Computed example of a mutant assay.
Amino acid sequence: MNKFKDFFNSKKSVAVIGLLFACFFLYTNLQTYFHLKYFSVYGIAECTEIDIQNTNTYAAYKFYVDGKRINGSIQLGSIVYLGWVGKHFKVQYSSKDPEINDLLLSKPVYDTVRIKKAGFVIKVQEKKEKRNQFRD
């Protein structure tokens, strides 16, 4: 018991905890990198919301893989466009684990046939009747 207290009171404990944290950080980032590099598949995602938390801005999105809905989010940089909500973009995900994914905001998708095949319902806006100023 005394050795346990001595370990946490020493500088060695900070080094060990720091090393474990660094290993975990490297593992998660390298796992994402290798999954997207070697098992990459592309699909279509819909941006569902843009959320601002303190100084960070996130875009939440959803897409479907084999009928299963996958939710994801991506941290945005300084360029934020609120018009992205409800729009469709390409998404890159791992064929082994679709929870590992990345939204490609630079690649919007406009083809309604492909959007429907991806599992989304297209919302059709009703045409508004134009006002005729000469009609009574």
Rank of each mutant, 00 (worst) to 15 (best):
88 H>N: 07
65 V>T: 04
36 L>T: 02
55 T>I: 06
93 Y>P: 00
133 Q>S: 14
52 I>H: 12
87 K>R: 09
64 Y>K: 06
31 Q>T: 11
48 T>Q: 05
136 D>G: 14
70 I>S: 06
71 N>H: 15
77 G>D: 01
76 L>N: 02
54 N>M: 08
52 I>R: 12
91 V>D: 01
91 V>Q: 03
19 L>P: 03
8 F>M: 04
115 I>C: 02
128 K>R: 11
40 S>F: 07
93 Y>M: 05
21 F>A: 15
133 Q>D: 10
2 N>G: 14
131 R>W: 15
101 N>A: 04
62 K>M: 08
58 Y>N: 01
20 L>W: 12
51 D>Y: 14
97 D>T: 08
77 G>M: 00
3 K>S: 09
65 V>G: 03
1 M>E: 11
94 S>P: 03
129 E>W: 13
67 G>N: 02
118 A>Y: 05
76 L>C: 02
60 A>T: 09
37 K>Q: 06
135 R>H: 13
44 I>R: 00
104 L>P: 03
75 Q>G: 12
136 D>Q: 14
54 N>I: 07
8 F>S: 03
104 L>T: 05
114 R>W: 15
128 K>I: 13
87 K>L: 07
1 M>F: 15
127 K>F: 14
83 G>D: 08
93 Y>F: 11
17 I>N: 07
89 F>G: 01
38 Y>L: 12
84 W>F: 15
37 K>C: 03
55 T>Q: 06
83 G>Y: 13
90 K>C: 08
77 G>I: 01
31 Q>R: 10
99 E>V: 08
103 L>A: 05
108 P>L: 03
33 Y>K: 14
81 Y>S: 11
87 K>H: 10
